[in-house]
């Protein structure tokens, strides 16, 4: 099992975390168009390589 260094609780088993998705900038809810909002919700970079993720 691989382990993730958590800034709050140190090195922990991956099973204690949940993967949320690639890290993306959240559009401003007041100005975002529906198309921008849906792209934010659904589109992933999904690259084969190193990527920044939210857990």
């Amino acid at each position: 099992m691989f382990r993730i260094p958590c800034p709050y609780c140190g090195l922990r088993n991956v099973s204690e975390f949940r993967h949320v998705g690639g890290r993306r900038a959240r559009p401003d809810v007041r100005t975002a168009t529906p198309a921008q909002w849906r792209a934010y919700l659904y589109e992933q970079d999904n690259i084969a390589g190193w990527s920044a993720e939210s857990w």
Binding site: G22, E43, Q44, N46, I47, A48
Partner: peptide, 18 residues
């Protein structure tokens, strides 16, 4: 599994995660 990489070659983004 590679569909978003191939679509990206054509400049198309897919809502897919592998």
């Amino acid at each position: 599994g590679w569909s978003s990489l191939v679509a990206a070659l054509a400049g198309v983004r897919l809502p897919v995660s592998t």
